[in-house]
Design a protein around this nucleic acid. Structure first.
Length: 192
DNA sequence: CTACCGATTATCT
DNA sequence: GATAATCGGTAGT
């Protein structure tokens, strides 16, 4: 398993968002028995969020307490709480040290630990896709305590490994935003 | 299948 | 005080 390094994340946020498709997000999860389990999935859908150039980004109005991770080192988890009930997970990525930016991971194709993920998600039967940023964080038990975690370190409880190379990629406007809808900064693996 | 609506609270102005 | 990078349920097509 090849581990994505700092170089990978030190590029334009849009490029990183596109290149994260097909990579594997791994969560080391300690279950009730104290054993570490791998919960993982192939990254299926991402969105890029910029800084001063992007009115839809948390970083648009400059540094605040919530978004500080977006302005820091790349390759870290930016986790925030939204709508009073959901978490969303991002990976910080931008080319210049003075810039800010992050990639929202919107959905995964579940790979390892599917039963645990269904349990955490409170899903009874089917659902083969962890679709939507809120469900994704629930399925992998990701919360604000993981904000700022370094994903490029070995043995981190959150990491991203090399995965498959998607054949076709779909590019669309981002979901759920009220500003900057004209930017085509949502990327997903095309199945055809 | 799509459309709408209500839940619920951290964060910022 | 207003808003929000959402979700799940319910009703309609």
């Amino acid at each position: 398993m090849v581990h994505l390094d700092i170089e990978f994340y030190s590029r334009n946020t849009e490029d990183v968002a596109r290149d994260l498709l097909g990579k594997k997000l791994v969560r080391m999860y300690e279950d009730g028995s104290g054993k570490l389990k791998r919960l993982s999935g192939i990254i299926y859908e991402t969105e890029a969020y910029g800084s001063k150039n992007d009115p839809a980004s948390h970083a648009f109005n400059g540094l605040t307490n919530r978004n500080s991770v977006m302005f820091g080192d790349v390759g870290k988890a930016y986790v925030y709480f939204i709508f009073g009930m959901h978490h969303c997970m991002n990976v910080t990525a931008h080319s210049s040290n003075n810039d800010a930016g992050a990639v929202l991971i919107r959905s995964l194709i579940p790979s390892e630990g599917i039963n645990s993920m269904m349990f955490l998600c409170n899903i009874k039967n089917k659902l083969n896709l962890i679709k939507g940023p809120g469900r994704l964080t629930k399925a992998l038990d990701i919360n604000k305590s993981h904000n700022g975690l370094n994903l490029t370190k070995e043995r981190s409880i959150l990491q991203i490994e090399d995965g498959i190379r998607p054949k076709n990629i779909l590019v669309t406007p981002r979901i759920g935003i009220s500003k900057a809808k004209e930017k085509y900064w949502r990327f997903m693996i095309s199945i055809d």
